Simulated assay, not measured.
Amino acid sequence: MRLAHFIFAVLISCSTVILAQSSGITKETLLKNSYRNPVIDQSLPDPSIIKGDDGFYYLYATEDIRNLPIHRSKDLVHWDFVGTAFTKETRPSFEPKGGLWAPDINKIGDKYVLYYSMSVWGGEWTCGIGVATADKPEGPFTDQGKMFRSNEIKVQNSIDPFYIEDGGKRYLFWGSFRGIYGVELTSDGLSLKEGATPVQVVGTAYEGTYIHKRGGYYYLFASIGSCCEGLKSTYTTVVGRSKKLFGPYLNKQGQSMSDNHHEVLIKKNEAFVGTGHNSEIVTDKKGGDWMLYHAVSVANPGGRVLMLDRIHWKKGWPSVEGGTPSLESAAPRF
């Protein structure tokens, strides 16, 4: 553990004791109602989350590029591994040597629908997006095959899918540092609507798109910088907002994300770097909004670990306390 990281942890621990003494709450109670990052101390990049009909939250991530791991939790803090979306036998194969990246989980009708990227590193014209379905969030998932490749849809680096329903229609957004694009889907979400044409939504600085609708605005969250260079990773979570799903998305000064302007949401600190590719927002029983994302731990930089932080809303904009990952914080209330 680096000295700065140690001092930061000691200060947090001391603050916890002082708060307990001043409020009459025991330290044990405070610790029980708090959590530490990372919430899963293993490499789980590009998280996507959904609440199942059984009351559990199910998490999907890139970590095993062959099969996509699935974890579940009741409280977003304590997680159990439940299996993988695919097996060696059921694994998608439209890109035979490709890895499975950046899953996006959804419920469409009575089916759990999992979008995934399939690519070899650097294969920006052969990569593509596929889709699989299951009756339960833990699977087994049945691959429905490729939706499109980059060279077929004429969008370079077609990875990082994100699904959203709006105005009774279904859409897929995707892209990585060659523009973020959106297109309308069929009613079952399994293919592009006939005649639909991809539309570029924002510029070329972004990947890992997630769009959240709140209070009359659409908020487009994305990641900038390098994801996968260990302690040299510059990944940073950013956001812009729009009155319309397809933009224009603007920062606080009215500058457009089409010109690569945005607001920074989560950046590095002494303990974590490479903070990006956030999940969907989850609201707890007290109305608190929470977001999962990945980062590289400075103390143990072996992979991209799973992080959790609360999203606060101030004057119509999302923020994270201090603008950086927390080490210890009050836990979600479920």
Rank of each mutant, 00 (worst) to 15 (best):
Y171V: 06
G145E: 01
L185D: 12
G175V: 03
M147C: 08
G139H: 03
N157P: 05
K146E: 10
W174N: 09
L192I: 12
G145V: 02
T186E: 15
G189R: 07
D188M: 00
E138G: 08
A196E: 01
L185M: 10
L190N: 08
G182Y: 14
K146W: 05
F148L: 12
K146A: 03
D166M: 04
G189M: 07
S158D: 03
G182Q: 07
E184A: 14
N151G: 05
K154N: 13
F141T: 00
I159H: 05
R178Y: 15
N151R: 12
G139F: 03
L190F: 11
F162V: 02
S158Q: 09
P161C: 00
V202P: 02
D166Q: 13
G139K: 01
P140H: 10
K193G: 10
F162R: 03
K154F: 14
S187H: 09
N151S: 13
P161V: 00
D188S: 06
V155Q: 15
E138M: 00
G139L: 00
P198W: 13
I180N: 10
F141H: 06
E194S: 15
F173E: 11
D143I: 04
E194A: 12
E165I: 08
N151E: 14
A196V: 04
D160R: 10
S176L: 03
K146D: 03
D135R: 06
G195W: 04
E152R: 07
M147S: 00
N157G: 05
V199H: 15
D135P: 02
E194I: 07
V202I: 15
L192G: 00
F162L: 04
Y181K: 05
F162I: 01
S150W: 04
P161D: 04
E194T: 13
F162P: 05
W174A: 08
K169D: 13
T197D: 12
Q200L: 10
E165K: 11
E152F: 14
R178V: 13
E152A: 12
P198T: 08
E152Y: 10
D143L: 08
L192W: 13
V183W: 15
G175E: 04
K146P: 15
S176W: 07
T142S: 11
G182E: 11
D143E: 05
S191G: 10
D188A: 04
G195A: 05
P161T: 00
N157I: 02
P137F: 01
G179D: 07
Y171T: 07
G182I: 09
V183G: 04
G139Y: 03
S158R: 11
L190I: 10
I159D: 04
N151V: 12
F148T: 02
L185A: 07
I180M: 12
Y171G: 06
F148P: 11
I164C: 06
Q156E: 15
A134N: 03
K154C: 04
I153G: 00
E194P: 09
V183Q: 14
D188F: 01
P137S: 08
E152S: 13
D143F: 03
D143A: 08
S191Q: 10
L172W: 09
D188R: 00
K154W: 08
